[in-house]
């Protein structure tokens, strides 16, 4: 019990350092954009594919269940609400941890192992500024962007199933959803969550890389920890945010 708590404390101290050393003049826009490419654009394939199939299977299941209550019309509403409010942000954050978080951790861990972080320090270049901050900001931007794309793909998957498999009218499917999803309460609520998750995922990925032991086992352990810690803390934060926002 002591060790996870200690680890949490260290992660918070680390974040404090990273943020306190953030100055507007030192922000590396070019580097941040590059990190958005590595963390965001390169996660597109997994996000698009997973999003589409989640939309398909969710629609299939809700149709099957709701038909028993004679409420099949509500399928699109169930799909959109569960996506916007929960599944989109949570699944994307966990997929992000697996795809981009691990590679951030491994990259920084290897930089530690190959003394690149020391070299920066010795050149009087702050590694927090050059390595940590761009990745934190990139995560903050990339995850909400991925969540939106995930939701978009899942809706497409839902429409695809409803129209081509169930033979539904696309306009009524879409219209039912449109009527019951609210911009502020449902859509923006989910977007707010995804910003929190993006920050969390990037923070943990950078932290575990930063604190990795400079050996191959150390880096391997750190990448595993990134996935586990992100998955757990995203779900916990999801509950906390939902409780506050609803």
């Amino acid at each position: 019990m002591i060790k996870p708590l200690q680890e949490m404390g260290k992660a918070v101290v680390f974040l404090g350092q990273a943020i306190s050393r953030m100055r507007l003049t030192s922000l590396q826009f070019g580097e941040t954009l590059r990190q958005i490419y590595y963390a965001g654009a390169r996660s597109l394939v997994i996000i698009v594919t997973c999003g589409f199939f989640v939309g398909l299977v969710l629609t299939l299941q809700t149709y099957d269940t709701l038909t028993r209550f004679g409420a099949a019309d509500a399928a699109s509403t169930v799909l959109a609400l569960s996506l916007f409010r929960e599944l989109g942000p949570v699944l994307t954050a966990i997929l992000f941890a697996g795809r981009a978080g691990t590679s951030i951790t491994a990259e920084i861990g290897l930089m530690r192992a190959t003394e690149q972080l020391d070299a920066l320090d010795l050149m009087a270049i702050d590694p927090m500024e050059r390595i940590v901050q761009p990745r934190l900001i990139a995560g903050l931007i990339a995850v909400p962007a991925l969540v939106i794309i995930f939701n978009m793909m899942a809706l497409l998957g839902g429409v695809f199933f409803a129209v081509f498999v169930m033979g539904n009218d696309p306009m009524s499917f879409w219209g039912n959803m449109q009527n019951s999803v609210e911009l502020g309460r449902d859509f923006l609520h989910g977007l707010g969550k995804s910003i929190g998750f993006g920050f969390l995922a990037a923070w943990l990925a950078v932290y575990f890389g930063w604190s990795a032991k400079a050996t191959s086992e150390g880096v391997a352990l750190a990448t595993t920890q990134t996935v586990i810690a992100t998955a757990i803390s995203v779900l916990v934060l999801d509950f906390v945010l939902s409780a506050f926002m609803l």
Binding site: R34, I148, I149, M152, L155, V181, E182, L183
Partner: peptide
Amino acid sequence: QIEITAGIFLALAIAALIFLALQATDR
């Protein structure tokens, strides 16, 4: 190329955001 791809990615996300905000929700 990296910066252009990152830009396209963000533009895609913003387009999807606008589409969802306008078309998938109840105004």
